[in-house]
């Protein structure tokens, strides 16, 4: 006899149909696709510590092929996936966040997620200092050198374009208008793989089809 009330996802190794169906309802995925995502989740969550949740080092290992080092963007992605802010990504959080990256997810959701990623201090605005910090981080990541003058010029140009009310910070509305004008900014907010996730990670846990 099972209870179908939401229960803690942490360390949960198996799900019943009601769990999967609830996650499908809360996301862009079908039940089948949620099952497939669970296969991916199992792989990621057992790469270092097999405890049924994804630790930051495990996400880092998957994205950078090494569990070591610091990366500002990885930290931001991890924090946004970790809805409960308990330091690990649980399966339902994984499904919720990936749902934003679905090719059929509304543009609005992608714009909002990207805004939250770039609003490093979570003030409700993307500030000049934050953009600077992120450009410096990407330079370090890619071993590129940029003079201070060029860095300031890139940021000036970006703010001239995005900060319409010229208050030195980018509001959510300004970000939305800016992202719509420059759709390439949201390119990494769509993962075409998510359309074929059942093929990439076939699941035999349930036979739902």
């Amino acid at each position: 006899c099972f209870s179908h009330r939401p229960r803690p996802w942490k360390a949960q190794r198996r799900f019943d149909y009601a769990d999967l169906s609830r996650l499908a309802d809360e996301s862009r995925f079908t039940v089948n696709e949620v099952e497939a995502l669970f296969e991916l989740f199992k792989k990621l969550s057992s790469s270092i510590i097999d405890d049924g949740s994804i630790h930051k080092e495990e996400l880092q290992l998957a994205l950078f092929q090494t569990p070591y080092g610091e990366n500002l963007f990885l930290d931001r992605v991890f924090d946004l996936f970790d809805e409960r802010r308990n330091g690990v990504i649980e399966f339902d959080e994984f499904v919720h966040a990936l749902s934003v990256f679905h090719p059929y997810a509304p543009l609005e959701e992608k714009i909002d997620f990207a805004f939250r990623l770039y609003d490093l201090r979570q003030t409700g605005y993307i500030e000049r200092e934050e953009v600077k910090q992120m450009v410096i981080a990407i330079m370090m990541e890619s071993d590129m050198k940029l003079s201070d003058e060029l860095l300031e010029a890139i940021i000036d140009k970006t703010f001239a374009d995005a900060d319409s009310d010229k208050d030195g910070r980018i509001s959510k509305e300004e970000w939305k208008a800016f992202a719509i004008r420059h759709p390439s900014l949201l390119k990494n907010m769509t993962l075409p793989y998510l359309k074929d996730v059942s093929t990439i990670f076939p699941s035999f846990v349930f036979n739902t089809e």
Partner: peptide, 26 residues
């Protein structure tokens, strides 16, 4: 100095940390 055409967010969005497609590469 040549006019800057680069957009900071275009640069930022190229980070490997933001490229989740590698999660799907087996």
């Amino acid at each position: 100095v040549a006019p800057v055409t680069m957009n900071a967010f275009e640069l930022i969005s190229k980070s490997q940390g933001l490229n989740l497609s590698s999660l799907f590469e087996k």
